[in-house]
Amino acid sequence: MTEDGAAAEVVLVTSGDEKHPPENITDRKMETFWMSTGMFPQEFIIRLSSAVKISLITVHSYNVRDLKIEKTTSNDITEFEPLAEKEFECTEGHLQTNDFSFNATTATRLRFIITSGYDHFISVHNVTVDGKYE
């Protein structure tokens, strides 16, 4: 969700369980989640309703190990550029919360690539994007 409370939606995902669909990533609820269904890498793309100057991305997840974020301002989804990369800590028994701060980077779409996990299956409960519309 952006500062203005505008919509963000997941437009691509690499695996899925009907019971734990990708919409759960942007529904602002911590209880619902998207679950990967085996093998790495896994990825999903979030489309913002228009160009946003991003200051903060927060990811709530479980058993994610290495995550890369890429961004684009174009409609062509082949043109992503690297934005951030991080190794998450293993948090047994509770969710992982990781912040990525930026000095106002502009994007219309964000791509999240999970290259490894602490388990075969990982979950993403929520991704929030804070910033201002261009």
């Binding site: 911590m30 028994g93 075969h120």
Partner: peptide
Amino acid sequence: AFYGMYQDRVQTIQSLA
């Protein structure tokens, strides 16, 4: 075995949130 593991993990994660 892999399927059993998946079901087990879903349950664990459901109990966390």
